[in-house]
Design a protein around this nucleic acid. Structure first.
Lengths: 129, 129
DNA sequence: TTCGACACTTACCTTTTTGTGCGTACTTCC
DNA sequence: GGAAGTACGCACAAAAAGGTAAGTGTCGAA
């Protein structure tokens, strides 16, 4: 029933982000894309519906949000619960794995926001030259 | 001499990553782009020359590496020292700010690599359905 | 009764990103 | 004496990402 995981174990090579086809690169992309970050952080405060997320992450299009959500779902970071009622009702929440991931990206984002002033100053200095 | 920082202070609004034009989004992009990550992590082990970086970050083109480096330099994360000798000699290293940033992204990357197996399993489960 | 909300999907088009190849000015290695 | 290495910049092409608009089916509100 369960597929033999031979290929899987080959693909998982720790510490090889440097190699071209390391699957970590894909996960990194999902997790750190702008919309990925926003979704992950937003879901920390609890379950959200599609349109809630859309309203909170200003500027995201429906297409991008759907795509982002699907990526994060496939990676096992978000859980999608669809209630088959007539006006569709779908709820998104973080899985345990997703909660870990989101705390990582949150701390990165917090650092960026805390140090944003310094970065902006550095940028200005460059412009002056 | 120093420019008045009026505009700067306006631009720095903490906790507003959700808004469309928050400058944090740009920093996030620089820091979490694949090549940005690789450069930041590689430079943790010390100063590197352009072609050293190119060799270590497998798959990066010269153009992309140059672009990445310029972005990180502008943000104040890397320091560029050019020795005006005849075969060009340029050294890149992390600034103190860059060292902080790189430790953030390193912990994110470490988490991803440590949990990669679980992610791959989640992906496989999706495929089976 | 027409409109908007819901959670998407699809097709099409534009924008952005990235790759490729070339040129540079000079040195060292073979 | 030809090739390779150095750290890029530039022009063009290819690829990927993203935006826009429309359609789905049913309900409740105006």
């Amino acid at each position: 029933m369960a597929k033999p995981a031979t290929k899987l174990s080959e693909q998982v090579r720790r510490g090889e982000l440097y190699t071209v086809d390391c699957p970590s690169r894909g996960v990194l992309k999902h997790v750190t894309s702008l919309w990925g970050v926003l979704v992950l952080i937003t879901l920390r405060s609890g379950t959200h519906r599609f349109s809630d997320l859309r309203r909170k992450a200003k500027g995201v299009s429906e297409k991008m949000l759907a795509q982002t959500l699907q990526g994060l779902e496939a990676d096992g970071f978000v859980d999608r619960k669809s209630h088959p009622v007539v006006p569709p009702h779908v709820e998104y929440s973080l899985t345990p794995l997703g909660r870990e991931a989101s705390s990582q990206v949150e701390s990165l984002v917090d650092w960026i926001e805390a140090n944003l002033y310094q970065v902006m100053q550095a940028r200005q200095r460059k412009q002056e030259i």
